[in-house]
Design a protein around this nucleic acid. Structure first.
Length: 804
RNA sequence: GCCGGGAUGGCGAAAUUGGCAAACGCACGGGACUUAAAAUCCCGCGGCCGCAAGGCCUUGUGGGUUCAAUUCCCUCUCCCGGCACCA
């Protein structure tokens, strides 16, 4: 008979909530611990990804709790966003009503998992009590020149009918729906995240407890590259073209330069030349080409000669100027110097168009390589040749010297280029935070005064999903007097990207109902930074980069003293079914609710922690669930075995108990829940082997060790074992080192590094004695009979290795 | 191409500093209990040879360092993720 999990789980969930067990406040003298998982979008149902994320967090919360920490573990909802609009259209309701209903459902599901949240801190980003502080932060940024409006080519998702940030474009598609992103020239609001680029990059070095790949991804995204801008004067003109290069050491080998077809200089430069028509045709052709096609690898690089020449500033050689589609206007200066001998793309282009080549770096250090003979560019390191006064230097050394020399002579400038662009935050959607800006014909762009916040989002908007900002159709919202001159003016009708909301919610949790600012600085000083953050890898750049940016901004305002929001980060792996991500479209979803009904939340929690380490992907297995359930029943039955147990103490069981405490505790501390659970299983097995002995202490230990994973079962068993209080108020079990010591130890005997047999010896045995013992063993005889012992290695307490 | 991660039984996985490869679980096989089944409890379970004792092989590939390598170094292959006509 299975244990009565549903009755137990219901009872303890009521207890934890009724007694507000996990509600906390600052307590001087007690170590704080702020544990946070990425808050969910309220879609109504939780999925296995949520279950995994929150179970990992909950197990750790309960563990830290029992270790005596003052643990803050809040939960809230990232409640603005497009799905609410889509659902509202589909179900003929309002996003507001739909969202609140979803939050209710979701909360219920979270409670049914037995998660340990401080629900008094619950927040939802769609409440004006929250988003008014989005507006406040926006205004502060506006004041500091960090929020600005500009017209430019921006990413546009035709399906979502809104603009997107660069970070929201994944492989050329919209991160949400996958639709190919288009470019549109629009006036939009941006946040100047680039003002923080150096700090966002440098401080990555301090994040030692973040996964390496997240650091690597942010590094790539910020994309610092150091090089030189070199100025090439046009022949017979005082104008010139700047090119950017990271290979200043190859400048003496530059035999032509290439401009991007969009380069603004071209039209003036080629006017009236015989090549003009051909060049304009080429530019026109490229401009009509799809960007993805143009950048694909198998498309042949094309180009035309402009008829113009410029001067290589280091050796005054006259070199031709070309236009080619493989040079991009968006990167560097939109112009490159071509060194066909040391860059493969330049090499192929030069071959095709019969352009000259010159070797300037030689792996052998001698000027013996003929440019005419090489079959590919040499991109490695070597010694400078054909490079004037720099001949003979290793190229890496020459790179710095040439750059400095060019800068001194005024023909180049050392430059750092970044990939990171400012963050576009305007969205042409309804369900988001209104941007607190008013447009006045006389006064221009006017910020809403702080006292007028919040700018409330109208509950009703005729949003139809047919394009255009829905708020622009709400007359009462749009028409407003100018705060400065009182003349009729118009409100901004775009809303903020929802990533704005989630960029600082971890601070709001410290004082969720504070009404004098986004957060109470004293509370934040106590709780922040987040000690452990847990969430999905999909936010490696987006949310985690933005949150770091906001934190640095608050630091600049003097509101907080730390620079990084999340001390430790754990990115949990995905839950797969048949090798694929669970998703509605694939139809391979396993509903957590069905598992809870069948086996209980504890079984689900245990299984999901046991199946794989938290960071790796895990494959869903129905058999695994059954195994976890079987194990919990096995644990449950132990309580009956304890009753009336009158056996003697068992040394073996006691030793196992203490070693399991030690190992399991270490494992939990390092989030290795799978092996921690394996340890507990071993102890349970050991108890079953010793049912005739006194098992009381061992069973108590099992219940306490397993309580972070299966809290309902543990609480119930704890009472049944005769304890009066919740297991949460019992301390974490401690082990005694002396219980782990053996009087008799097993020594491994190897011959030539391979295990041959084992011998027992007393723990204090000397090295010499051990050697003798091993050599004297009858099982050693065949090995040393006809061979000579060359060496004997002894690792005290562990092994003897005889080398013959 | 650059950066980061990875490859261990039929499967999920484990292995302190280099020191018993495969803990724990799943699946599978056998036994006990039962009229029977389920449940439960116990035993076995990398491959090859052997009646057995035991031996040989085995952590993606090839090499190296070492008394000893899943672990350290080098080479290559494949897989996952990020960036990229990035100059």
């Amino acid at each position: 008979m299975a244990y009565p999990f549903s009755e137990i789980e219901e009872r303890w969930q009521k207890y934890w909530q009724g007694h507000k067990v996990f509600n906390v406040g600052p307590e001087p003298g007690r170590k704080k611990y702020y544990l946070l998982e990425m808050f969910p979008y309220p879609s109504g149902k939780i999925h296995m990804g949520h279950v995994r994320n929150y179970t990992i967090a909950d197990a750790y919360t309960r563990y830290k709790w029992m270790r005596g920490y003052n643990v803050m573990h809040p939960m809230g909802f990232d409640a603005f966003g497009q799905p609410a609009e889509n659902a509202a259209i589909k179900n003929k309701t309002k996003p507001d009503i739909w969202t609140h209903k979803c939050i209710e459902w979701m909360k219920k599901e979270l409670c049914r998992m037995g998660f340990s949240y401080d629900w008094d801190r619950e927040l939802s980003t769609c409440e004006s009590g929250y988003y008014r502080w989005n507006q406040w932060i926006f205004l502060k940024m506006f004041e500091k020149g960090l929020a600005y409006k500009k017209g430019s080519d921006v990413n546009w998702c035709p399906s979502c009918e809104t603009t997107l940030a660069n970070e929201e474009v994944v492989n050329g598609g919209c991160w949400r729906c996958g639709t190919q992103v288009e470019q549109k020239d629009l006036e939009q609001w941006f946040l100047k995240i680039t003002a923080y680029k150096e700090r966002l990059l440098d401080d990555l070095k301090e994040l030692n407890d973040w996964p390496r790949r997240v650091i690597a991804m942010q590094n790539n995204w910020i994309g610092k590259s150091e090089g030189v801008d070199i100025y090439f004067r046009l022949k017979d003109s005082d104008k010139g073209i700047s090119v950017f290069t990271t290979r200043a050491d190859t400048i003496f080998g530059a035999t032509y330069i290439v401009l991007a077809p969009e380069h603004p200089f071209i039209k003036d430069m080629i006017r009236g030349r015989p090549q003009e028509k051909e060049a304009l045709n080429f530019i026109d052709k490229v401009s009509r080409q799809n960007k993805a096609v143009r950048s694909s690898e198998d498309v042949k690089k094309e180009g035309v000669f402009t008829g113009c020449y410029c001067v290589n500033p280091v050796n005054n050689e006259i070199i031709p100027i070309w236009i080619a589609d493989y040079v991009l206007m968006e990167y560097g200066t939109g112009a490159i110097m071509a060194v066909p001998t040391h860059d493969q793309r330049d090499f192929l282009f030069a071959k095709e168009h019969k352009l000259p080549m010159k070797v300037v770096i030689s792996p052998e250090g001698r000027d013996t390589i003929s440019a005419a003979k090489i079959s590919e560019a040499y991109e490695g390191d070597g010694i400078q040749v054909n490079s004037g006064q720099f001949n003979g230097l290793p190229n890496q050394e020459a790179k710095a010297k040439i750059a400095a020399w060019m800068e001194e002579k005024g023909i180049g400038k050392i430059q750092t280029r970044w990939r990171l662009r400012d963050w576009l935050i305007s969205r042409q959607r309804y369900w988001g935070t209104p941007i607190p800006i008013i447009y006045c014909d006389k006064c221009g762009i006017v910020p809403v005064p702080y006292d007028d916040l919040p700018v409330e989002l109208p509950k009703d908007a005729p949003f139809t999903g047919e394009g255009g900002s829905p708020l622009s159709k709400v007359k009462e919202f749009v028409d407003v007097p100018c705060p400065e001159c009182n003349a009729p003016a118009r409100r901004e009708t775009d809303t903020m990207a929802t990533f704005f909301d989630s960029s600082w919610y971890f601070l709001r949790f410290c004082s969720p109902s504070f009404d004098k600012g986004p957060f109470d600085e004293r509370e934040a000083a106590y709780w922040m930074p987040v000690d452990q953050y847990i969430g999905g890898i999909e936010h490696a750049i987006l949310h985690l980069l933005y949150s770091r940016f906001f934190t640095k901004f608050f630091n600049d305002l003097g509101m907080i003293s730390f620079k990084e929001p999340f001390r430790k980060l754990l990115t949990q792996g995905m839950v797969l079914k048949d090798g694929e991500v669970m998703s509605k479209s694939r139809g391979n979803i396993v509903d957590p609710d069905s598992i809870i009904r069948k086996c209980g939340a504890d079984t689900l929690r245990l299984y999901i922690l046991f199946a794989a380490p938290p960071e790796t992907e895990m494959e869903w297995s129905e058999r695994g669930i059954e195994g976890a359930f079987r194990f919990l029943n096995r644990v449950w039955r132990l309580a009956d075995n304890v009753k009336g147990n009158k056996g003697e103490r068992s040394a073996a069981l006691e030793k196992k108990t203490h070693s399991v405490i030690k190992e399991a505790t270490q494992d939990i501390e390092g989030f290795k829940f799978n092996t921690a659970i394996a340890q507990i299983m071993e102890l349970v097995n050991e108890i079953y082997q010793n049912l005739d002995s006194d098992i009381t202490e061992a069973v108590h230990t099992v219940v306490r060790l397993i309580s972070p994973f299966t809290p309902h079962l543990a609480e119930e068993m704890w009472l049944r074992l005769g304890n009066k209080e919740s297991i949460l108020s019992s301390p974490w079990p401690e082990y005694e080192e002396k219980m782990l010591e053996d009087k008799v130890i097993t020594i491994i005997v190897q011959v030539n590094g391979k295990l041959r047999f084992k011998i027992n010896a007393s723990s204090g045995i000397s090295t010499e004695k051990l050697k003798e013992l091993a050599l004297a063993d009858e099982r050693m005889a065949p090995w040393i009979k006809e061979r000579q012992v060359r060496n004997i290695i002894v690792v005290p307490g562990k092994l003897v290795n005889i080398v013959v």
